[in-house]
Amino acid sequence: MRRANLGTDLLANISYGSGHYVASGYSVYEEENEQLQEGLRAKVSALKSLTIDIGTEVKYQNKMLEDMDSDFDSTGGLLGSTIGRVKQLSRGSQSKLLCYMLLFCLFVFFVLYWFIRLR
């Protein structure tokens, strides 16, 4: 008799209406897998969004670097022409260079004198 009651208890634990088997725990694992899948989908979506943002930032940074490269090239050209002029000036007679230096020193002296006097 006890064995007959044991079989009916097992059948009582099985829910046929909802399709879930409580006794075997099958629905618990299935629900847990679905929750884990949803979590994984959310993480993949966040990762996709992050990689798109990184790609956009990389493109912006590359454009800035190209602009800086062109700016440095133009500055290098300007600096090269200025150095060429200084070399040309130094090739001239020393008296011209001395005259230019003297005029520059006088100009600086008068500007400083005028600035101090106004204070």
Rank of each mutant, 00 (worst) to 15 (best):
E34V: 10
T51V: 10
L10Y: 07
G76C: 13
L50H: 05
G76L: 11
R85H: 07
E32S: 04
S45W: 08
M101F: 14
L65T: 08
S93N: 07
E57S: 02
G19M: 02
E31L: 04
L47V: 09
L97S: 03
E66L: 09
S18A: 10
H20I: 13
D71K: 11
D73E: 12
S70T: 09
L10A: 11
K48Y: 07
F72Y: 07
Y16K: 10
E38I: 03
S81R: 13
G17D: 15
A4Q: 14
V44G: 06
R41F: 08
T75Y: 10
E38Y: 03
S49N: 00
A4S: 11
S27D: 12
V28H: 13
S49D: 15
D69G: 05
S93G: 05
L50A: 14
G7H: 06
L47G: 01
A46L: 09
D73A: 15
K87T: 15
A23T: 02
G55S: 04
G39W: 01
L6F: 00
G7W: 03
T51P: 03
T8N: 11
Y21L: 03
G84L: 01
L98F: 00
V86D: 00
Q37C: 15
L97V: 13
H20Y: 01
N5P: 10
N33Y: 06
Q61F: 13
G80L: 11
L6H: 06
G19V: 09
K96W: 09
A12Q: 03
Y60E: 08
L11D: 10
Y26F: 14
G7E: 01
V28W: 06
L36I: 07
N62Y: 04
S24G: 02
L79D: 03
D69F: 05
S24L: 09
G80W: 11
K96H: 07
D53G: 00
Q35I: 11
Y21C: 08
Q35M: 12
F72K: 04
K48H: 08
Y16P: 01
A46W: 13
G92V: 06
L97Y: 12
Y29V: 04
S18R: 07
G77M: 12
V86G: 00
N13W: 15
A23M: 13
K63Y: 13
Y100P: 05
M68S: 02
E38Q: 02
Q37V: 15
I83R: 02
E32L: 15
G55A: 14
L11E: 12
C99K: 15
V86K: 12
R91C: 01
L10D: 04
K48E: 02
S74L: 10
Q61G: 00
Y16L: 08
V28E: 07
L89Q: 10
L36D: 02
M68G: 01
